[in-house]
Each structure stands twice: as C-alpha cells, then as structure tokens.
Design a protein around this nucleic acid. Structure first.
Length: 644
RNA sequence: GCCAGUGUAGCUCAGUUGGCCAGAGCGACUGAUUUGUAAUCAGUUGGUCGGGGGUUCGAAUCCCUCCACUGGCUCCA
C-alpha cells in the first residue's frame, strides 16, 4: 500500500501500482471522464502510469494549466500522425504545447504546404481522434530509440536523441504513430473534439538561423466544439483592438511607402495624444531632478566607435552618411547615450555634483530587419524617453530604486497593472558576447537584483538577455494578440563611462569613474502608444485623449449656441470639437461613439434656453443635463491626471 | 534577412479555365430634409487593378523582379 496526499491535505491509502485514472474513477465517474492528466509530486504524469511511491496527488482537468497543456501536447502528436498519413516520409522536429495551443515543426521535403492544405489535415486529425486511440508510454534504451529513428530516416529526432541520457528516454504511440517524447499525454485521442489549424510559418531548426528552415504548423484544439468557437471569437475581438487598425481608424498615425517602411508619421490626433504623454513625463522628471538636454540626430562615426556600438551593430545599421569631405562619416544616431556622455565629459565634475541626470526625448534610428517591422511596436525611427543618470557606486542602488519608482508611477498612472519585470543577466556560456570586466558585471547584476527585491516587484530572471554592455531590468507587457513587448527599461552600465573616460573628483581629491544608468520608463513613445492603444481598446484616459468632448447640435440652428459652449470649455483647457454637419442627431451620436470620444453634449432648444448641456458618455449613454458652468468644472476635474 | 501568404476606389471587399467600357457597400461631393440620443433620401464623383519587365492578338487574371503589408522564425544597442 502507498499513501497519496490529496490537494485538500487528506490522505488516501491505495495499492501500489495504481494509476491516477483508477483513483479518479474511485472518486466519481464524472471526474474520470473529465480528467486529462495528474500531478504526482509536482510532476505532470499520464493517467495510466502506475504510481508506486507515497506521493502528493492532484488530478488535472481542462481548467488546470497542466491539463490544457497536456491536451495540446497530445494534439500536436495527433497532428503529426495526420501528417504522416497524408504526407508519407514527412520528418518531424519538435511539437510542443504553447500558451494558446500547439505547433509541430515538420520537414515535408519538396512539398510546399499551403494554407489550403490545413482543412484537409484538420479533417484527418478529427477522423483519427474519433478512433479514440490510446496514448501508450514506453521506456526505451537510447540504442533502440536511435535504431528506430535512423531506420525511419528522421534525422531531426536522431539529433534530439543524441543529446539525451540513456535510461531517460520514452516513446509515446497512438494509432500507428510513434514519437520520441517525455510526455505526459491524455488517455486517448477521443477527448479531442474540436481542432483548428491556424497558420503556417517557417521556423529554423533549433532556432538557429544557419540551419534548415522547417515548416511550423500552429493549431489549437478543445474538448468541446463550443470552446473552439469561443476561442475564435476572442481572436476576432483581439484583432479589433489591434493598434494598427485602431490607429488608422482614430487618425493617430500613418505609414507611407514613399517615406519608408517602419517610419511612423504622426497625424494631428496622434501627436496631440503623444504630446500629452511627453508633458506628463517631462513634468514628473523635472520634479525628480532631471535636467533636460537636446542633442543632434547624427553624430560622427568616431562617436559610435568610441561607444562600441559601431563594432557591434554597424553592419546591420543605416550606413554612414558621407559628406563632400573625404574620410568624414556620420551616423544617424541609434542611441542617445554617447551624446550624453559627451555632455558629461564637457566639464569636470565633483562628487558633490552627483548624481547628474540628463533627460532627452531623443529620436533614434535603427535598421530593423524588414521582416521585423510591426505597426508602432517595431519601427526604424522612434523616440525614446531617454535619460542617463551618472552617479557614484554608493549612490547606485538608491538611484536605481528612484528610477524604479518613477517607472512604476508612470505605469500606474496609465493603468498598466499587468506587466512582467524581467531581470536580464549574462549568458555565462557565451562571455564573448559581452564587453566589460567581470567584477563590474557582478556588481551591476547584484545591484539590479537587490533593488528589485527592495522595491517589492515580482520579477522573472532571464539569462543571456542582458545588453552587451550590462544587465537590465525590462518591463514587459503583452499586446492584444498575446505577443510580449518590452516597454520601460533600466540598465546599469559600467562600460560607457570607461570608454568615454568619464570621471569625477572624489572626496579624496582623486579621479573616480562614475556609473551610468540608462533608463526609459515608456521605452519609446511609439511602442508605448501602440501598446496603450490596445490596452484601452482605443478608449484613452480622458487626460490623454485627443478630443475630450464633442458638441452635437440637434440642427444647424443650434450651431451658434454650440460655439458658446465650445468657448466656455476651451477656456478651461478642455479639448472640444463641434459636429456642425447637417445630419440627424442619431447620426452624430453614432459617429462620435464609433470614434470613441469620451463625452458628447447634445445641444437643442431645451439646452439653449437653460444655458445647459445634455451629456452622454461614450459606451454608457445619457448621464444627465448640466449647466455649462457645472459641466465645465466637472470635465476639468475628470481630466486631471490624478484621476484614475 | 529567411519561410509562407496578401496587395483591386479614401475604407471594407466582389471580380482568374486570360476576352465587351473593372463592380458593390460605406465614405467624399451636390441637392433635398432643420432633425432629441448608435447610420435620412436622391444624384454625382471616385481605380496607373502595389511598381517595373515579360508571355499573348488580348493580362487585374499567367511568368520574372522589386516594393509594401500580414503570420511566424532569426534579430532587437
């Protein structure tokens, strides 16, 4: 007999060798039908795997993370089986579950898979699923496993096997398909009731650009048909939030083929919104002791050779600009920091001057690969809300905390509660990727880790994600379609002060090296506004939105009255428009609603007589009639930044 | 940069076994309607079919090439 500790803490005595499925059945038939896998001592297991030791025990259903991922992983195997039936000789890379579904990377030889093939594959998968084939686990020796895949001619699986330890290798089979896999899987294919293959993409084998590109098929599956429909509806909903679509609809920004790919152009409404954000941050930074500076958009190539950026990125950047003079080359600036280092170096500094904080909304230019461009979130020209803090070693942690506080203040003011703070450290296996001394790296990494801990933020640590000159703390948020983007960033840099030979005179009257912190709470205005647009589905906070209220005269007769109301509101700094078109009120309201203008004022006979406005709130409808004066006051209050 | 897909009017989209002057809805414009809380009616206008080259008697449709966009991969100071 063995003891199973259930999630509620109770203990079940069962015969050794019992399976999780048998335990589920002994609890209830309904549960046995729903259960997909089990968590045994924190590890997700097949339901059919015998349990032989005392264990903690938890049954996983679709609603548990482990349950859905098991389900999707099994769906990937089903996809592979269908592909093998339809395209004999297909070779397989890897086929994992992901956040929202699964994929399989396959090599179809000369066959060019197209989206039209997907329905056929879905059909085959559903037909295989209905056979209710069980997923069978089998432990195999490395020799056996290699023999199997060598015979099959699947060099990808052979390569994967070469990295595995003998005794740690399992196969899973369902129907006529066998795959190298550590599992676990759902009991049988019959649980998979709804499948949608979403798209096809190229993916380099093992993520290595120099290796063969396989065909990746993405899909999603569900235990119920309705769940698939709901999922597809959610995807449609998300597309409506896409900042590229909303940005065009709301007239925020545009792109022009003639201006160039990845070069966003800000339209009046977008610029109005952006300017508000800039002002917001500018004022906050002034309060926090930053000094604004401004530097040119180009700099001599030598500047970036000094900084090290040219050696690292020169080849992949916009190429140097020539002048009539020979041997004179300038670069479009990809970073503001070298310029700011020159400002620091301009005068000698005492330890009494530090910390010095230079801030600039600096526009930079980076030649992003053509396939990478994406709306406002990945562009070739963008403006960083940049600043560089020069401080002493003893000030580092305090400054880091101060920057962290500013970043969190900014995020909260804009309603971003759901972000991930990522600590990016070195990849210790590739030291050549980084410049700077070991001791500096250690000091910088520990400063970030400690400050994050002290600020009490939740973090995840990623090794190998550091910048080439230092570790960083990045704030990551997801867009409408679940893609993760970096917004704010804080980076400790011991390297640039070294390269630019920056110094200060210490208490001991000797020269010392300052430490530099790069930081940008928004990251860039472009990306931030892109993500913010999706975050609020185009319904921006009142203090940011380009038009705060639109006046809707019932007929032309009341246009003059509207102008009276307009000047009263405008006088208080409220951004107000009038819809003077010769249209019915229903039409004007509809257009204002579609344009997501937060407030509408309906103005007709009744309002004019009483010097009043009948207010309607976007998405909510009529909220009442107020005197002009009363409403102006309310608007002013609502539009204050502190309002959240 | 790589793989796959897409590109027709300001917007959303029809239109391919290659064949009359390339269509619709919305928008815009003009006129009528003077309107009370999510689309008033009528008329008019609008397109180098992404650019260039080729095949053909004939190309939006087939081929080549470049550009842009979409979904991924790789990259991201």
């Amino acid at each position: 007999m063995i003891k199973l500790t259930m999630p509620d803490g109770s203990i079940r005595e069962v015969a050794s060798g019992i399976t999780a499925y048998e335990v589920a059945k002994s609890i209830s038939h309904g549960l046995a039908k729903k259960v997909l896998s089990a968590e045994i001592n924190g590890e997700v297991w097949d339901l059919t795997r015998p349990i032989t030791n005392d264990s903690s025990f938890k049954l996983l259903t679709w609603d548990d993370d482990g349950g859905a991922s098991t389900f999707w992983h099994s769906s990937a195997h089903l996809l592979a089986e269908a592909l093998e039936n339809l395209y004999p000789g297909v070779k397989f890379g890897i086929g994992p579950s992901i956040d929202n579904g699964f994929y399989y990377d396959v090599d179809l030889g000369d066959y060019q898979l197209s989206p039209e093939d997907l329905p056929k594959i879905e059909k085959e998968m559903l037909s295989l699923a209905s056979q209710k084939n069980t997923y069978e686990r089998k432990e195999v020796s490395k020799k056996e496993a290699l023999a199997y895949f060598e015979e099959k001619g699947d060099e990808y699986k052979v390569e994967l096997l070469e990295d595995l330890q003998d005794g740690d290798i399992t196969f899973y089979s369902q129907g006529n398909f066998t795959d190298l896999c550590k599992g676990p899987h759902i009991p049988d294919t019959g649980k998979i009731k709804a499948i949608k293959l979403l798209n096809i993409a190229g993916a380099y084998w093992r993520g290595d650009e120099s290796r063969k590109q396989l065909t990746r098929i993405y899909g999603v599956s569900f235990p119920k048909k309705e769940a698939l429909n709901e999922h597809l509806e959610r995807l449609e909903e998300a597309k409506k939030r896409d900042h590229r679509k909303l940005g065009a609809e709301l007239g925020l920004f545009m792109f022009s083929e003639r201006v160039g790919a990845g070069l966003p152009i800000w339209l009046p409404k977008g610029e109005a919104l952006r300017r508000r954000l800039e002002d917001f941050l500018r004022e906050e930074q002034e309060r926090r002791g930053y000094q604004a500076v401004r530097t040119p958009h180009i700099g001599k190539k030598d500047l970036y050779e000094t900084s090290g950026h040219y050696a690292k990125y020169g080849e992949d950047s916009f190429q140097p600009i020539q002048t009539p003079k020979t041997d004179e080359e300038f670069l479009l600036k990809p970073m503001n920091c070298p310029h700011h280092c020159e400002i620091y170096a301009h005068l000698p500094h005492s330890y009494r001057d530090l910390p010095i904080r230079y801030a600039e909304f600096g526009t930079v230019y980076r030649y992003e690969q053509s396939g990478e461009l994406h709306g406002l979130t990945r562009v070739r020209s963008f403006t960083q809300d940049d600043a560089h803090v020069f401080c002493t070693a003893s000030q580092l942690k305090g400054e880091f905390l101060e920057v962290l506080d500013l970043t969190l203040y900014v995020f909260r003011a804009l309603g971003f509660e759901d972000f991930t703070a990522q600590i990016s450290l070195r990849d210790s296996e590739n030291p050549d990727k980084y410049i700077g001394s070991e001791s500096n790296w250690v000091a910088a990494e520990s400063a970030i880790i400690e400050a994050s801990k002290e600020a009490g933020i939740q973090t995840i640590t990623e090794y190998g994600e550091a910048a080439f000159y230092g570790p960083k703390l990045d704030f990551m948020v997801k867009d409408a379609l679940g893609r993760s983007w970096q917004l704010g960033t804080i980076q400790v840099d011991y390297n640039l002060p070294e390269r630019f030979d920056l110094t200060y005179i210490g208490e001991d009257n000797a020269k010392h090296r300052p430490i530099m912190i790069h930081r940008a709470p928004f990251g860039s205005f472009e990306r931030f506004i892109g993500v913010l647009t999706e975050h609020c589905a185009g319904k921006f906070p009142l203090w940011l939105t380009p038009t705060q209220i639109i006046l809707l005269p019932i007929s032309n007769v009341f246009n003059d009255y509207a102008k009276v109301v307009q000047s009263a509101l405008a006088k208080e700094g409220i951004r107000v428009e009038i819809d003077e078109r010769h249209e019915k009120i229903g039409r004007k309201i509809r257009d204002a609603e579609v344009n997501k203008i937060p407030y509408m004022a309906v103005l007709g006979e009744r309002e004019m007589k009483e010097n009043a406005v009948a207010i309607r709130q976007q998405g909510k409808g009529n909220i009442g009639t107020f005197s002009i004066e009363e409403w102006t006051k309310s608007m002013k209050k609502f539009a204050a930044i502190s309002q959240d």
